[in-house]
Amino acid sequence: MTLANQIIWGSIYLGICFLFEIILLTWCTQLVRELTLRLENAKRFFTIAAPICLALGFIVAIHTFQVWLWAIVWVFGDVLTDWNTALYFSLVTFTTLGYGDIVLGEDLRIFGAFASVTGLLAFGLSTAFMVALMTQVFKEELIS
Rank of each mutant, 00 (worst) to 15 (best):
F58G: 01
A49N: 09
N84S: 13
T29H: 08
I72N: 03
T127R: 03
F89Y: 15
D101W: 09
T36A: 11
L25F: 06
L19K: 06
G100A: 06
V117T: 14
M134P: 00
V92R: 05
L37E: 14
I110G: 02
S90P: 12
V67N: 02
A42P: 00
G57L: 09
D82G: 09
I12Y: 04
E141N: 13
R38D: 09
I143A: 14
M1N: 04
M1R: 06
M134A: 10
L24Q: 05
L80T: 03
W70I: 05
S126A: 15
D82H: 14
E140S: 14
K139I: 08
F65C: 09
L35M: 10
L56D: 02
M1E: 04
D78K: 15
S126Y: 01
E34R: 15
L133G: 04
K139L: 11
I22T: 13
F46C: 08
L104V: 12
A49P: 02
T93K: 00
I110H: 06
N5S: 09
T2M: 04
I102T: 10
E106G: 09
T135S: 13
M134F: 07
E40L: 08
V137S: 01
T127D: 01
L54N: 01
W83M: 11
L37I: 07
F46Q: 14
K43T: 10
Y88P: 01
S90A: 15
C28W: 00
V73C: 07
K139H: 12
I59W: 02
Q30S: 11
A49H: 09
T64M: 08
E40K: 15
T135D: 08
G105D: 12
L91G: 15
V75T: 08
T81C: 02
G124M: 07
A128Y: 04
L87E: 02
V79R: 11
Y88L: 06
I72S: 08
E106H: 08
Y88E: 04
F111E: 01
I59L: 14
G124L: 11
T81M: 12
L142C: 10
F123C: 05
G112I: 07
G105R: 10
T36W: 02
L104N: 03
R33H: 06
F45W: 14
Y88W: 14
W9V: 07
F111H: 03
F45A: 14
L91W: 11
